[in-house]
């Protein structure tokens, strides 16, 4: 069982690079502990900016630093970062074209028992609707590392959502195929395609194994790049399948499911079923309890595919 969180990996990658690259700057809004960035703050105090509990300031300052050539990584709970500072993201980052990487930590229902104020079930929709804003939801620690290595090499803004808890590995140290902005085929199949992102990829992979045992062949596609959605990879995987199922830790509107349905509907019409959180205040509990309640687990995904196929 994996105990290393994706946020720890983010800190690790940034610390490795910050030694040689003095332009890497990390900002937190009283969130260095939650973001696992306290080691960075301690090791690189000159490359760390604390703004206090002020998310608008966080993103505005980030944009100003980036305008001057800094490679900026701003981390704050996804619930606040994606809505409280939304206009700063739109105007100061996307519109002004500043190299700010926004890291939404404790995303989705990571703060399950804290209630709707702390859930971010709208961040994909909100961020994806901003022209020029990219949205990434890495699935496991290995992919998180590859993604951040790629993000360090570009100069455009992006929003990255990561969860609070350690997630089971989808890939391995030895094998983590990754190409920037291209979805990763987790497993091949012939009957159905399951498209997932973030923490839902591993349950999707497990669902495919359950289905295989009963004779249903399901492919799984890890769409970590929700925007720009890899439409080519999606259509290639969806070709010949009878059903496309999407799975996401997000509202039913404007997230992965909506975007996948848009591409499938326009190019290769077939049944698309969207598994997501409900359009309602989410039940509270640990994130696992929440996922189980809404069928966002291997059994629930397998059941949906079986029923709709």
């Amino acid at each position: 069982m994996n105990t290393i969180t994706n946020r720890q990996i983010i800190c690790e990658v940034l610390m490795e690079r910050a030694k040689a690259d003095r332009d890497i700057v990390v900002l937190c809004s009283d969130s260095r502990g939650s973001a696992s960035l306290a080691p960075f703050a301690k090791a690189f105090p000159e490359q760390f900016v604390e703004v206090g509990i002020a998310e608008q300031d966080l993103v505005g300052i980030s944009a100003g630093l980036a305008k001057m050539g800094k490679k900026v990584y701003a981390a704050s709970p996804a619930s606040f970062l994606s809505t409280r500072s939304y206009e700063q993201v739109k105007v100061d980052c996307a519109y002004s074209g500043t190299n700010v990487k926004l890291i939404g930590i404790s995303g989705g229902v990571s703060y399950g028992a804290l209630g709707m104020s702390h859930h971010s079930a709208q961040d994909i929709a909100a961020m994806a609707a901003i022209p020029g804003m990219r949205v990434y939801l890495p699935s496991d620690r290995f992919q998180t590392r590859r993604l951040f290595e790629a993000l360090l090499a570009d100069e455009k803004p992006a929003y990255i959502r990561t969860g609070r808890n350690a997630v089971e590995d989808t890939y391995s140290q030895a094998s983590c195929p990754f190409e920037m902005d291209r979805a990763t085929v987790v497993c091949e199949g012939t009957d159905a395609l399951i498209v997932a992102c973030g923490e839902m990829v591993r349950p999707a992979k497990d669902a495919a194994a359950l289905l295989k045992a009963e004779g249903i062949s399901a492919a799984v596609l890890d769409m970590y790049c929700v925007k720009p959605l890899d439409a080519e990879g999606l259509l290639s995987c969806a070709a010949g399948k009878r059903l496309v199922a999407t799975v996401e830790e997000h509202s039913p509107f404007g997230g992965l499911g909506s975007m996948v349905a848009q591409v499938i509907g326009a190019n290769d019409p077939k049944r698309v079923v969207n598994l997501s959180l409900p359009d309602a205040p989410v039940v509270t509990g640990t994130s696992k309890e929440v996922f189980d309640y809404y069928g966002l687990n291997a059994e629930g995904i397998a059941r949906a595919v079986r029923q709709k196929l």
Partner: peptide, 10 residues
């Protein structure tokens, strides 16, 4: 103002 603060910090 926040943007200018980022510039001044840099």
């Amino acid at each position: 103002l926040p943007v200018a603060i980022g510039m001044a910090l840099a």
